[in-house]
Design a binder for these strands. Structure first.
Lengths: 341, 341
DNA sequence: CGTTTTTCCGTAAACGTTTACGAGAACACA
DNA sequence: TGTGTTCTCGTAAACGTTTACGGAAAAACG
């Protein structure tokens, strides 16, 4: 079944060295010989054994992606990642790289699962998502000198690694701007209580915009909750029961928004009528919720492709002749106006 | 950084053969020697190089999962797969197996992407999802003699491989039963037009139940559409405009149900009031749609774990002493009654 | 003490590649 | 013809493991 480079050599009556050189497009092989080798390879259905190649080259030709489930996210995960993975994998495949998925312990942002990948050298680099402000995984990878890139920024590890993030700060600003323009002055912000970095960025933008509009920042308008429906459901009333009720809420997460809307419904408050609601990251849930939720939408699949490029540019084995370079980018979100604000 | 088995041997002044045997728990090594080796391994932070081991053993210790995007599914993928993957990966990790993700060309159910994995021996086995009734990928893998398991059944490849499926037939029946019990006699069925196997199973169950209730099967009550919102939106009116309007619709897919409900809304027909709606596979979208859609829910994470077990049981390298065996299972769905029926 | 068995370990080959090195042949140049 | 250059290829080592084989030492047995 599996034909090796030896089979080719025997079949053609030449040495394996020549076969290998012919296959790898090296210069020091006769044009006619190369032709014969390529034909034989096709005829014998040869393709190089990955393990052999990896061993010799010291590279596995595969990239690991760490998928970090939130706790209490049992039934369905974030739809966020499928299109991102599609893009990531597509670009990696162009460079003959495989994608490995390593899943974290739900809610545990620890490098344990990563350790295996790094120590047994199962991947050449790692892509991290769901970055926290202080991220043990980033610390671990930097210290280990293992190449990686992140979807999302962090305060860990400096800026010595490629990262691609969404501009949550700007989205927070724009959300406030939009609400202020529509006459709102009491605007609440609800975000996840985890150390997830985007929660900080969002709040920065929110605060900045309020300040710009001369609106005093009321701590009672800001609440953190568990990053799922339950969290939104629990924390939204806290904001609504403050002395001076908000007339608008910005949710930093779709699941929390859904839970929050449920709480609002139970209080007889209708989004889009009695209160304005904006969600920072759009998902299909926002589109199909009733009322449909106004939200900021990322372009996930292009982001996946781009992050792959950025990672590759940082790897000596794939960087162009100009050498490696660390790229960090922040992409804007696109507002999708619907019915809730 | 990377300490090899040679480093250990040198450090302990013994041969690499002994080190390897000690590490792999073979019998012919002195207890005290083994102790010393294990300690040194820990001290030198040794872990075996995966490529070297793979090459020698002829096994990669990784399993590939083929994620097959639907066409026109750009923005968000099926949330279905994340929890399934979580379970799959969890069980595989217990056996020190990695999970590789290979994505198909959107909508193209062809073995091209698989070929690379098989031919370069990047994985020891493959897990397929989204099985079609006639599935080229299954044909290819069987013919190649490459081990695989499927999430979902198919008519291809006989039953020589492990498969785990959801009981769509029974769900179709139960949906009809439930609707009949509530007085419905005109029940429509809407399913994807692709060759996806579950569409057939669902329809079998639907027909069977109608027959059992003595209800004549009206071809005008059955419609196929593209497997996304647009498809549901386009095809639902076809069913509603038939001579004798249905009083209930069963959707075989959540996205199609959402599109269908949009079409219904535009016709002034309210699910839960003017028409009953049941969805066969539940997703968060069903829960948060308004009205919340009654749906049948699978237990994805356990299914992932189970399929991993079934696959492993079919592999000589992992089967117990009783030898390998092919397991095929069909799991029930759980009805989640909400507001739409 | 001699023989057999057991215990433990070293040796070396093998897995399938890639690549540094060197050598033979052909060719060019003087 | 002698020398240097270029083209092409074979040889063999190396990557890090695992494991079949054999042998030395120790233990068991008569």
């Amino acid at each position: 079944m599996a034909s090796s480079i030896h089979d080719l050599a025997r079949h053609l009556n030449i040495s394996i060295g020549t076969v290998s050189r012919a296959l790898n497009g090296r210069a020091d092989v006769n044009a006619e010989t190369r032709q014969r080798v390529l034909e034989a390879a096709r005829k014998l259905n040869y393709s190089p054994n990955q393990s052999g190649r990896s061993l010799r080259k010291g590279a596995t030709h595969s990239i690991a992606f760490m998928l970090q489930p939130h706790p209490g996210d049992q039934q369905y995960g974030e739809p966020f990642f499928i299109p991102f993975l599609t893009g990531l994998q597509a670009r990696l495949a162009e460079h003959d790289l495989d994608l490995m998925v390593v899943m974290g312990e739900p809610g545990q942002y620890q490098p344990e699962r990563l350790r295996r990948v790094v120590e047994t050298r199962r991947a050449d680099a790692v892509v991290l998502a769901n970055t926290r402000r202080e991220d043990d995984r980033i610390d671990y990878l930097s210290k280990a000198g293992f190449p990686f890139a992140t979807l999302g920024r962090s305060q860990s590890g400096g800026d010595a690694y490629p990262s691609l993030d969404i501009d949550f700060e700007r989205a927070g600003e724009e959300a406030v701007d939009r609400l202020v323009a529509r006459g709102h002055r009491r605007i609440a912000a609800i975000r996840p209580s985890l150390d997830l970095n985007f929660g900080y960025l969002f709040l920065d933008g929110y605060r900045k915009a309020l300040k710009r509009h001369g609106i005093e920042i009321d701590p009672g308008m800001i609440a953190d909750g568990f990053i799922n429906e339950t969290g939104g459901y629990q924390v939204t009333p806290r904001v609504m029961l403050s002395r001076d009720r908000p007339t608008a809420i910005i949710f930093n997460n779709d699941a929390m928004a859904l839970g929050g809307c449920k709480a609002l419904a139970e209080m007889g408050i209708r989004p889009g009528h009695d209160i304005a609601v904006i969600v920072i990251v759009d998902t299909p849930l926002c589109r199909y919720f009733s009322p449909a939720l106004t939200a900021f939408r990322p372009s996930l699949e292009p982001m996946g492709r781009r992050l792959a490029e950025m990672l590759l540019a940082s790897l000596p084995a794939f960087a162009g002749p100009e050498g490696t370079h660390i790229i960090r980018e922040v992409w804007p979100l696109e507002l999708v106006a619907r019915e809730s604000d």
